[in-house]
Simulated scan of single mutants.
Amino acid sequence: MDLVAIARHFPACVEGELRITPITDGLINATYRVELLAGGQQFILQKINTAIFRNPAAVARNHSLVNELLAKTSYPRQLVRQLKTTVGNDLLTVDAQSAWRLLDFVTGAHTIHKANSPATAFEAAKTLGEFLFYLNQHSSAEPEETLPGFVDFAGRMRAYQAALGSASPTRRQQAAAAIHLVNKYLTLPDQWIAWQAADSLPRRIIHGDPKISNVLFDSNNQGLCVIDLDTVMSATLLYDFGDMARSYTNETVEDDAQATSVFDPDMYLAVKQGFSHHLGKLLAPIEAKNLDYAAQTVIFIQAVRFLTDYLNGDVYYATRHATHNLDRAQNQLRLLTELTHFLTI
Rank of each mutant, 00 (worst) to 15 (best):
Q258L: 15
N250C: 01
M233K: 09
G274V: 11
Q161M: 11
Q161G: 13
M244V: 05
V151L: 11
S213A: 10
R158Q: 12
L238C: 07
S213L: 07
S168A: 05
N220P: 08
N214H: 02
V271Y: 02
L186P: 12
F153A: 09
H207P: 10
Q173T: 14
A154G: 15
S166D: 12
R156V: 12
A270L: 03
A245G: 05
A154H: 13
G274D: 10
D152C: 12
G223F: 05
L188N: 07
I205R: 12
A159S: 14
F217I: 07
F150T: 01
F150H: 02
V215E: 14
D190L: 13
G208L: 05
R158V: 12
R158H: 09
L229A: 06
L238F: 07
D243K: 02
L269V: 04
F153H: 10
G208C: 09
V215C: 14
K184N: 14
H207W: 06
I227S: 03
F263S: 02
F217K: 12
E251C: 14
G242E: 05
K211H: 04
A178Y: 08
A198V: 10
T170D: 14
A198K: 13
R246S: 06
Q196Y: 01
R172D: 06
Q173P: 09
T252S: 08
I206R: 03
G149N: 03
N183P: 00
H180R: 13
K211D: 00
K272I: 05
P202Y: 09
R172V: 00
A167H: 00
D230F: 08
I227E: 07
D243A: 00
G155C: 07
S168V: 04
Y160Q: 09
V151C: 12
H180F: 00
S213H: 10
S234N: 09
Q161S: 14
Q191L: 15
I205G: 12
L164Y: 08
W195Q: 08
A159K: 12
T170N: 14
T249Y: 03
L229P: 12
G155Y: 09
M233E: 07
G149K: 00
S200H: 08
Q174L: 14
L188F: 11
I193L: 10
Y160V: 09
T170L: 15
S168Y: 03
I227W: 06
D264W: 02
Y248I: 05
S200E: 11
Q196S: 01
L238W: 05
V271K: 05
F217P: 07
L188K: 08
D209I: 11
I212Q: 03
A167Y: 02
T236F: 05
R203Y: 15
Q273L: 14
Y248L: 05
Y185I: 03
A167T: 05
Q222L: 13
Y239A: 00
I179N: 02
D230V: 09
A235S: 15
A163D: 07
